[in-house]
């Protein structure tokens, strides 16, 4: 009786390499599966989580030789990335904004590997005294359940990021009322780690958000007054928005925006959030690959923050990415 370990369904032997069990080939006999599991427990812990991650990523699979070739070329002093980028370079990004008429702001981002994400911003007038957070993030990833740990952890990362760093003043209406922003993120397809894509799309959507213009008075402390709005004039939302970068660590090297293949061979992953010219929380490690996760040299965290800052602080780069 064959046991399916993951998503890919093919009848091949499980191979063992110096990097661990090759994840492309997931079907093996029950007895063999147990043996491998005993031998490489680290590859199988949180197996439920692994399958979750694998579901959305069907093309990540590398053979043993491809894997070792790629690892060597990314590990060496002169990094050669499979698509010829340098360590600071993003993949080409295609974006559209303002295509959803029923939302206050919207954006769509497509990466070169076919990953795609749509963000909608909707605003609602709320009583400031009753609402704690003026930003609410809702995430949906095609192929994942809404209550899956994968989706939930990404949602909480983004929620904490935006709730903390989007200033309340920029959403202020009157002394009583404020706008509450509902950020809905829909990931149609993803092959690499989706955080960068989602945060860039949200950045774009927030930068192209238009809110109805207030016509009633700003000060309603004395008189009970419901805010009223202009019928067709809008005001552009002025906010500074944090952005999250994903960095893959391989040996002593850090590379930005890893593709699915690079994620597969990476030793570890880092997310670095950037806001107002400095790194902020959440910053931490992420699982980019299922098998060979290695511990992280703290010096590399500093190195990757430097890498991100060289990108984020260069206005030229940011414009390229975000225009």
């Amino acid at each position: 009786m064959a046991k399916v370990l993951g998503y890919e369904y093919g009848k091949k032997e499980v191979m063992r390499t110096k990097y661990g069990v090759v994840s492309g080939l997931w079907v093996c006999a029950e007895s063999q599966y147990k043996k491998i599991r005993e031998k490489f427990p680290s590859s199988f812990d949180q197996s439920g989580h692994n399958e979750e991650v694998l579901k959305g990523t069907r093309r990540m699979l590398l053979s043993a030789t491809e894997r070792s070739y790629l690892y060597e070329s990314l590990h060496s002093k002169h990094i050669i990335r499979p698509d010829g980028r340098n360590i600071k370079q993003f993949r080409p990004i295609q974006s559209h904004t303002g295509f959803l008429e029923l939302s206050n702001g919207s954006s769509k981002i497509t990466l070169s590997d076919g990953s795609e994400c749509i963000v909608s911003i909707k605003a609602k007038v709320v009583d400031k005294a009753q609402e704690q957070d003026l930003v609410s993030v809702d995430l949906e990833i095609a192929g994942h359940r809404e209550d899956s740990p994968y989706t939930l952890s990404l949602t909480s990362t983004l929620q904490s990021l935006y709730a903390k760093h989007i200033p309340r003043e920029s959403l202020n209406l009157t002394s009583k009322f404020a706008y509450k922003l509902y950020i809905d993120i829909l990931v149609i397809a993803t092959y690499s780690h989706p955080l960068t894509m989602m945060s860039l799309a949200t950045y774009l959507a927030l930068q192209s958000t238009f809110l109805p213009k207030l016509t009633s008075s700003v000060d309603d402390k004395e008189i009970e007054e419901q805010p009223t709005f202009h019928d067709y004039e809008f005001v552009k939302l002025q906010v500074t928005v944090p952005v999250i970068f994903t960095v893959a660590v391989i040996g002593e090297n850090c590379i930005i925006d890893p593709s699915a293949e690079e994620m597969e061979v990476s030793d570890n992953g880092l997310i670095v959030s950037w806001f107002d010219g400095k790194p902020i929380s959440p910053m931490g490690t992420v699982r980019l690959s299922e098998t060979n996760i290695k511990s992280l040299n703290p010096a590399l965290i500093v190195k990757s923050v430097d890498l991100v800052s060289s990108i984020a602080n260069s206005p030229w780069n940011v414009q390229i990415i975000l225009s």
């Binding site: 909608s120 909707k122 809702d138 949906e140 095609a142 809404e146 509902y182």
Partner: peptide
């Protein structure tokens, strides 16, 4: 079929 929460005029979460 995924009817997104932002699809209607008033934002509404729909159960799948």
């Amino acid at each position: 079929l995924n009817v997104t929460p932002f699809s209607s005029i008033d934002r509404k979460r729909r159960n799948k």
